[in-house]
Write a protein that binds this DNA or RNA. Structure first.
Lengths: 136, 136
DNA sequence: ATCGGTTTGACAACGGTTCTCATTACGAAT
DNA sequence: ATTCGTAATGAGAACCGTTGTCAAACCGAT
């Protein structure tokens, strides 16, 4: 094996103590958390990792595709460990519970409509927000 | 007539000089601009409207559905006058040119998939970013 | 152990947005 | 027109998430 290992954050990235701590804590939850929340969790867990380092690590991991990023409705970034495939999320507005969803049809639609208007190098953001069953 | 008039920003909102100035400037462009850009345009046009007022007016108008809002990829809010129907946007990453798109299929898909997971009161964000033909 | 490039952490700086609050404008009633 | 109660404004401070700075600590190959 050579990547996507819990104890080895990313490819050419040095597996430092703090990066491993971040990677590890990311395994402990399944929904989206902000950088600050993650930093707080680390601190609470007795790890001493600087806030700046958390931010840096998070964006490193996001860039190398190890992490999902989404912008909450008020513009903050939230992170979550990533399952390799491209997908979107259905997030509960009040408790944050997340369901990973796939929409091959949407992907195709996005590609098609973009091409139709002469746009290339398409990327898209798609998030669903709602109230989940137990928060009803 | 009674609403959606250029000179009467919103329903129970007082049509003040500055609100009208904001509404008017919004008619002068068709793509998305940030609150600060809009404020700068107003100032450049000789209108004296405070930045805070621009922010307040913009979010008022957005709430009452007179404006489209979108979050750029780096989390800032951008506004644009709104065509009444629900729709999404295909935005050029380099010049900001915007194409308004509709995706009834996507709407239906979003509803369906949310219901399927027991989520209610669904809202969604969907934006496409790409490079337009003339920026190629 | 040593050395050179990485990474870290504390804290300052930033940029967008929101808040505060005294002042002003609105518009309904007089 | 004048008055009055309320909503709106503006200037600036405050906020908050995020990014930058830079000296000190760390990693790992030698």
């Amino acid at each position: 094996m050579m990547s996507t290992d819990v104890n080895k954050p990313a490819a050419a990235v040095r597996p430092t103590k703090q990066r491993m701590a971040v990677a590890r804590i990311l395994e402990s939850f399944a929904d989206f958390r902000s950088a600050q929340e993650i930093h707080a969790m680390l601190t609470a867990a007795g790890e001493t990792v600087g806030l700046a380092t958390v931010y840096r690590t998070l964006q490193l991991m996001a860039e190398s595709g190890d992490l999902d990023v989404l912008r909450t409705e008020d513009g903050e970034a939230a992170y979550r460990r990533c399952s390799a495939t491209h997908h979107h999320h259905l997030v509960c507005r009040s408790c944050g519970a997340t369901v990973e969803i796939e929409g091959p049809a949407v992907e195709r639609w996005a590609e098609a409509i973009s091409a139709e208007h002469g746009y290339t190098e398409i990327s898209h953001t798609l998030e669903l927000f709602g109230t989940c069953a137990s928060c009803r």
